[in-house]
Structure formats: structure tokens, C-alpha cells
């Protein structure tokens, strides 16, 4: 799945650069939250010919920074609602771009954002790709989970 990892990198770099003006670099270190309450995840589900989930995991400090840029307010003034909106939109762009690489037709869900423990295991799904990045000194990861039992659950 190295191919997919390269595609994720290409899209992620493009998204962070054009929307936020931020440079991100690939990193070998998978993002591990030191404190679970500080970890956020924005995710979109893909259904159709290919089924799975694209998730962006990051520390809330990075999500704050993203929101402060997108809403053009100081980091300390960002509201939780705006942080969720901004992170959700990044997940939406990432997932939307990736969706076009899967067999058609596929459909994208609206994004959801949650405070999460960083657990990549979901019953009925397998992790097909995990790419990690650094934005300045802040880490984040993007995971792709593929539903293995298509049409399995209801």
C-alpha cells in the first residue's frame, strides 16, 4: 500500500499548503497522543464500491492552529465548534480527494469530529494505510480503514 501512502502525502501536502499556507513533511513516527483528552479525530466515511473510513488524527493544539488560520482569529480565541468545523473540512478534503482513487461509484459522508482515543481497530475493518506527518513540530496521522465484510453489517 505504498502507492496509497504516496497519494495521501501528495494530497495532504497540497491541502495543507493551499488552504492553510502550511508546509507538512512526512514523518516515520506515528502520532501517539500523550494525553487522550488532547487528541482529536476528524473522519469521513466512504460507501459504495469501496467502503471504509478516512481519519485525520491530531493533537488539539494543531487543530486549534488550523481553526485559527481558517477563521482568521488568534489561537486562544478559537471556539470548540470552529475547531471541529475546520478539522472536519480538512478530513472532508482528504477523504474526498482519496475517494476518486477508488472504484466508482463511491459516496462521501459528511465529516464528523470527535475527541478520541487513538484506536485504529474497528471490528469488520482493517487498517490499509497509515501515513504520518509533521506540521512544524506538531505531529498528525491519516489512516484509511477498509471495511472487509462488504454488505456485512446492516
Amino acid at each position: 500500500m505504498e502507492h496509497l501512502e504516496n497519494d495521501i502525502s501528495q494530497y495532504t501536502e497540497a491541502i495543507w499548503k493551499s488552504v492553510l499556507g502550511l508546509d507538512v513533511v512526512k514523518s516515520d513516527k506515528v502520532y501517539q497522543p500523550d494525553n487522550l483528552e488532547n487528541a482529536l479525530a476528524g473522519c469521513v466515511h466512504i460507501t459504495g464500491e469501496w467502503q471504509g473510513t478516512v481519519t485525520l488524527h491530531c493533537p488539539s493544539s494543531l487543530a486549534k492552529k488550523v481553526a485559527s488560520i481558517m477563521f482568521d482569529v488568534p489561537e486562544d480565541d478559537t471556539q470548540m465548534q470552529d475547531i471541529q468545523d475546520a478539522l472536519g473540512e480538512l478530513a472532508n478534503m482528504t477523504g474526498g480527494n482519496l475517494k476518486a482513487l477508488f472504484p466508482e461509484p463511491c459516496y462521501l459522508s459528511l465529516p464528523t469530529v470527535a475527541v478520541t482515543n487513538f484506536d485504529l481497530r474497528v471490528p469488520g475493518s482493517e487498517l490499509v494505510c497509515l501515513a504520518s506527518f509533521k506540521c512544524g513540530n506538531k505531529p498528525f496521522s491519516i489512516s484509511i480503514l477498509k471495511k472487509v465484510s462488504k454488505n456485512g453489517s446492516g
Binding site: 491541502i15 488552504v19 472532508n92 478534503m93 474526498g96 480527494n97 475517494k99 476518486a100 466508482e104 461509484p105
Partner: peptide, 27 residues
């Protein structure tokens, strides 16, 4: 202005009467 980036989607939008199409992310 959307994250839908399949060629088929661009075609569909134009046929429905959209004049232009920008794929997110945009500048």
C-alpha cells in the same frame, strides 16, 4: 467548489448547468 473530483462528477455538474468547477483544495 467541492471535494468531488471524479471526472464523472465534473461532467454531471456541467450537464446540470454549472458553469465552472473547482476541486478542493483551492487557493
Amino acid at each position: 467548489v467541492t471535494t468531488e473530483t471524479e471526472m464523472s462528477q465534473v461532467v454531471k455538474a456541467l450537464e446540470a448547468g454549472a458553469n465552472e468547477y473547482v476541486m478542493k483544495p483551492f487557493t
